[in-house]
Design a protein around this nucleic acid. Structure first.
Lengths: 269, 269
DNA sequence: CGCCGGGTTGATTTCAGTCAAGCAACGTGG
DNA sequence: CCACGTTGCTTGACTGAAATCAACCCGGCG
């Protein structure tokens, strides 16, 4: 994990655009403006420039541990490019994937109190660039700037919504259905037919969906009969709407015709 | 759902204590101070009394819907006594339980922006009393009072930690193990042998653990052989430490002797 | 009484995990 | 350049866990 310069200028659109066009990862990081990150999109200039002074951009190769579950929180981390996987480590040592963060997503919920520790471990998946802001500075700024505070709150809300959705799918859908929904989430909106490349390897996808890779492979095989062509890592969805329809069928197939009773109307102690 | 008076005095320890001793639910609600709720424990008096003016206490019987997924957020809700179940409703109509809130827990993440909607449905489980604060007022106060803002943030953090733990257990533990951990979470800390009553019926517990009630029943049967006596709704844990040990064994039994490779060190697109 | 609703139990099926083999793509070193 | 090991992915045969279907028990309660 080597640290790069921290030229976090807050408004160099042209320079950034040039870098983006070139597609050079390092250059992108260099020219990236905090303003482009959802978390900082609506922050006042003053707060943002203070933040920029404190922020450090880092480029990591694959498999680098950014922080470990239980470590004291020293930095707020945002992903600029690449992917970071978050996982829980059980006392026994086995890891369960919780989520994968990409693009402009924040990794840890910015926390206030001191003596706080990370609730998960974070590790890069493929080459990745991130921004780190010292947690203490960040907390102080979040207190002072209403806009930043609101952004943090919104971020937490998004994260909660994501986790709730994950719990829902784990509890109520089988492997095939979860995969189908995952594929759909990758399809660019509005296109009936689409072709794209899986963002990360199938082991990771399996872990994300909560199944073994063999099971995932078989799930892909089933989807093949519903218009989803796969070639190792390239996906072709022949008809998005058809796949959506299939999802509903799969869902219906799982639960018997029509349920009469809801989830109980039981009484507590 | 009938609304009671909103006598939210902020410091009547003696009166509250008396009501508590009597154990009368209505009286408790009446005498309850916002100060007793974790969310408001450290708030400045001024903010708290403003809040108290806006807050309404309500007593509900079992099976009452507090709000529905997709409804615009009008109130921040905190549980005073009883239980509230939160669930997601799929388009097809089937419900999946996400969490159960009790004691002094908040139900929804307090949100700022207008036009926000509830991400889950909330319904009482057994007779329950709750406090409602209009969302708009609450948001304004949270902006103005740093202490309240911090409390909200802490609350969100707790909620995230809980959801992450639930995902972890769903992905990495079988039904027996999840039940064992659930039982352990109900045991009062520090006691080697304990006896208590399940907080809600077994259908709900099954939904919480993400299994069918039949499976839960069998899981209880297995635990019976490990020192957990059950009599419909009453539980006797003969030895907490023994149960903890069993959990580790169950965990070890699931995953083969010793894993060499970690979760992959794969590369992204 | 008889009729629930909640809980248990048993028989069977379905889904996903395990074990094991095999294949294609890739990089490395001879 | 090819032999080779590695890594990611797929497939098949089998096992095991949990869902399903169904019967039954038992403690209220009209």
């Amino acid at each position: 994990m080597r640290s790069d310069m921290n030229d976090l200028t807050i408004g160099l659109g042209a320079r950034k655009a040039r870098a983006m066009r070139r597609g050079d990862r390092l250059k992108i990081a260099e020219a990236f403006s905090l303003r482009d990150l959802p978390l900082f999109a609506n922050i006042d200039d003053e707060t943002l420039s203070t933040l920029a002074l404190e922020a450090k951009v880092e480029s990591c190769e694959a498999g680098v541990t950014i922080f470990r579950q239980g470590d004291p929180i020293v930095s707020i981390v945002v992903v600029l490019s690449g992917f970071v996987k978050l996982m829980r480590i059980a006392p026994g040592g086995d890891e369960t994937l919780i989520a994968i963060r990409a693009n402009g997503e924040t990794i840890v919920e910015p926390v206030m109190g001191p003596d706080e520790t990370y609730g998960v471990s974070a590790e890069t998946v493929g080459p990745t660039t991130i921004v780190k802001v010292p947690a203490a500075r960040f907390a102080r700024l979040a207190k002072e700037s209403a806009a930043l505070g609101a952004a943090v709150e919104q971020d937490a809300k998004n994260r909660i919504a994501g986790l709730v959705a994950e719990i829902e799918s784990l509890k109520s859908q089988n492997a095939d259905l979860r995969l189908a929904n995952f594929i759909l989430s990758l399809c660019p909106p509005g296109e009936e037919q689409c072709r794209f490349r899986l963002p990360y390897d199938k082991r990771l996808i399996a872990a994300l969906l909560g199944v073994k890779q063999e099971t995932l492979s078989r799930a892909f095989a089933k989807l093949r009969e519903h218009g989803v062509r796969t070639e190792t890592r390239d996906i072709l969805v022949e008809s998005v709407s058809r796949l959506v329809a299939q999802c509903e069928h799969l869902g219906r197939a799982m639960r018997p015709p029509e349920r009469t009773g809801r989830l109980t109307r039981d009484n507590a102690a």
